[in-house]
């Protein structure tokens, strides 16, 4: 398998960015990723949708994605063009949801501390290496446990289940 390289500009936020800010409940009457993406981050950063370009990376401090279980949150982020989220830590349901829908997420407090909004970031997803191209510095993030890597490789949780013949019919 060739290395997966993600590259884009950083959009940086603080701690406890919650799912209500990522995708407010007033838009939860749809499951369409294209519609959800239009309102992504609306209650924390009105200019996000205007500024984001395909491949860009969200960088945040502690407990990113806290709050509700809405999978619409990682779906909106992915559909907005974000290629990965780097944070000090993630809220656990957001973490699960991201793995399950195939949104790459990485934990690296060192990288988060050094990255500024607008920096160009390059991620080698297989190696878990985060490179701040603007500052020419690299950071190693925690690799995913094997169990999760299998889900990611299968393309998401349901595809993984089908590949293992896990469904009971």
């Amino acid at each position: 398998m060739s290395d997966i390289i993600l590259k884009g500009k950083a959009h940086k936020y603080g701690s406890n960015v919650n799912t209500d800010e990522i995708i407010p409940a007033r838009y939860l009457n749809t499951t369409d990723p294209a519609i959800l993406s239009k309102y992504c981050m609306e209650d924390i950063d009105k200019n996000f949708v205007k500024n984001v370009k395909s491949g860009d990376i969200i960088v945040a401090e502690n407990n990113f994605g806290c709050g509700s279980s809405r999978e619409h949150a990682p779906i909106a982020i992915k559909a907005a063009g974000i290629s990965a989220v780097i944070a000090n830590s993630f809220a656990r349901i957001f973490f699960r949801n991201s793995i399950n829908i195939g949104l790459p997420i990485l934990e690296s407090p060192e990288a988060v501390k050094a990255i500024k909004s607008g920096d160009t970031i390059e991620i080698n997803l297989n190696e878990g290496i985060i490179k701040n191209v603007t500052k020419n510095k690299s950071y190693q993030s925690q690799p995913f446990p094997e169990f999760m890597q299998k889900i990611i490789k299968a393309g998401g949780l349901l595809d993984y289940i089908k590949s293992t013949g896990g469904e009971q019919s």
Binding site: R70, E71, L157, L158
Partner: peptide
Amino acid sequence: ADSHTCTYGALGAFSTGVGSTDVSAAIAT
């Protein structure tokens, strides 16, 4: 698939919130 699923711990059950895809997988398997 609701974050407040943790409520049922009051009964002495293990309960936790997950996402829609998790529930989808659970209702299959």
